[in-house]
Structure formats: structure tokens, C-alpha cells
């Protein structure tokens, strides 16, 4: 469904990604793990068009999306719950969710049943339902994370990118986030999950990639990666 081939990208003259290739088959949950600064966020930013690829190809649903602007890529069905949540602070929760479906409401994606999907989000994230009229800027960090995920899901995306949904959350909330990811996986939502909690990510994922200094250094079925001695030493031994 999503395919990244020999991606090279960075910021200005600084090249961060040297050569990244990965694949997210339809209906699967793929995780991209790696230490802080490895280039995980940069990979997602390049995939969704926020930064330009210097070379390489990005394919979504069989069509090339390399070089398109973020809004065009979203209109092709790629949703991104970005690092740092980036909810719209001066808008209520309900409007944040509605904007997740902006392309559906305005006709550049198949409309489906937006109202029903809103209800589904409120059922999946009950705390958002309680706070639907509250401004997003006044939510707690955990609630904002839920909102960022729900907002991305409102696209009814072909692929969902999740950038460290557990970042900065209390352990109980981290568990909640992972249980929601497991639930989305059961619903066969295609996902690329970036995580620093490598153990938890590999537990829930089908397949994993390890990123080091802008290069993929290991990959394989999640269970196999989890037992790989090198991966264990680098990411699981000292993991939380």
C-alpha cells in the first residue's frame, strides 16, 4: 500500500536520510524503530510531503506521490498523526475532528458517512466525547494525543502514519494508546508506527524496520526482530 524506495532527504543542505526503503502492505501494521535522532520523524515528514525527497521514490496505492505537496498527498488518502500532536488549539475538539475529514466534506475524497465516523471516534476515545466542545488547546497531553490520532483517522485513510503516539505520556496512557493501536490493527487499518518504545511496538506490529543514522540497518517480522541479538542489545535491553 505504501512503498518507500531509496529515499534520501533532509533539511536544507543537511542530509538526514541516507537511503531508506520500506514497505507497508495493505492491512498490516509496520513499525519503524530507532534511537532518538535516527531520522524516524524525518522519514514520515518526507513520506507525507512536509519535506522534499532529494532522491528516491514514494508510492501510495500503486501511484507515485514523490514531490507532491502535503495537502495533495492527504487527498490521495495518507493520514499523518504528527510528532508533537499539532492539534488546532483555538478550535473545539469537534472541529478538530471535522477538519480531519476536510477532504471528505469538500469532495476531494469519497465522502462516506462522516457523522457515523465521528460517532465511532467518540466511542473509541470516550474522553474526547466528553470534551467535544472544549478547545483543543485546553486538553491534557494524553487527550491531545488521542485527538491527533482520531483526527487522522477521520480521513478514513488508506495508510495511517503515527509518529510516537506515546511520547511524553504517563505509563497508564501509553498502555491505552497501544491498546487502541491494537484495536485499529484488528480492524485492518494499514499503519506505519514510529516508536521509541521498541518492545511495545514490536509486540503489536507485524513487521519492523530499524533505523540508524538515516539508514535501515535491520528489518524483518516483528517477532524475529524482537529475538535478534543485535536489536535486543541496542533497543530492547535498555528499553523502558
Amino acid at each position: 500500500m505504501l512503498k518507500v524506495e531509496n529515499l534520501v532527504a533532509g533539511y536544507g543542505k543537511v542530509q538526514v536520510l541516507q537511503d531508506v526503503s520500506l514497505e507497508v502492505p495493505q492491512g498490516s501494521l509496520v513499525t519503524l524503530i530507532g534511537s532518538n535522532g535516527a531520522g524516524k520523524t524525518t522519514t514520515l515528514r518526507a513520506v507525507c510531503g512536509m519535506i522534499a525527497a532529494q532522491s528516491g521514490r514514494i508510492m501510495l496505492d500503486g501511484a507515485e506521490i514523490t514531490g507532491l505537496a502535503p495537502h495533495q498527498i492527504t487527498r490521495r488518502g495518507l493520514a499523518h498523526s504528527p510528532e508533537g500532536r499539532r492539534v488546532f488549539p483555538t478550535l473545539p475538539v469537534a472541529d478538530n475532528l471535522l477538519l480531519g475529514a476536510f477532504t471528505r466534506v469538500t469532495g476531494s475524497r469519497p465522502k462516506g458517512d462522516v457523522a457515523r465516523d465521528l460517532d465511532r471516534m467518540y466511542a473509541m476515545f470516550p474522553r474526547l466525547a466528553e470534551r467535544r466542545a472544549q478547545l483543543a488547546g485546553t486538553l491534557s497531553g494524553g487527550e491531545q494525543q488521542m485527538l491527533a490520532m482520531a483526527r487522522a483517522l477521520m480521513l478514513a485513510p488508506l495508510v495511517l502514519l503515527l509518529d510516537e503516539p506515546s511520547m511524553g505520556l504517563a505509563p497508564r496512557l501509553v498502555e491505552e494508546v497501544f491498546s487502541i493501536i491494537a484495536r485499529l490493527k484488528a480492524e485492518r487499518v494499514t499503519m506505519l508506527l514510529v516508536e521509541q518504545f521498541a518492545a511495545a511496538a514490536l509486540d503489536v506490529a507485524d513487521f519492523g524496520y530499524v533505523l540508524e543514522n538515516g539508514r535501515v540497518t535491520a528489518s524483518g517480522p516483528a517477532a524475529a526482530l524482537k529475538n535478534d541479538p543485535a536489536v535486543r542489545a541496542a533497543y530492547l535491553g535498555t528499553a523502558h
Binding site: M50, P70, H71, T74, R86, P89, T90, L91, F102, A152
Partner: peptide, 16 residues
């Protein structure tokens, strides 16, 4: 309003 709040995030919503 979303663009005024956070231009990059608005782009991710499919907003030009």
C-alpha cells in the same frame, strides 16, 4: 482558522 493555528498541520488535513 486551522491554517492560522498551525499551517503545517492544516496541510496534513488536506487543506491547500
Amino acid at each position: 482558522v486551522a491554517t492560522a493555528n498551525d499551517r503545517d498541520a492544516a496541510g496534513l488535513m488536506g487543506i491547500n
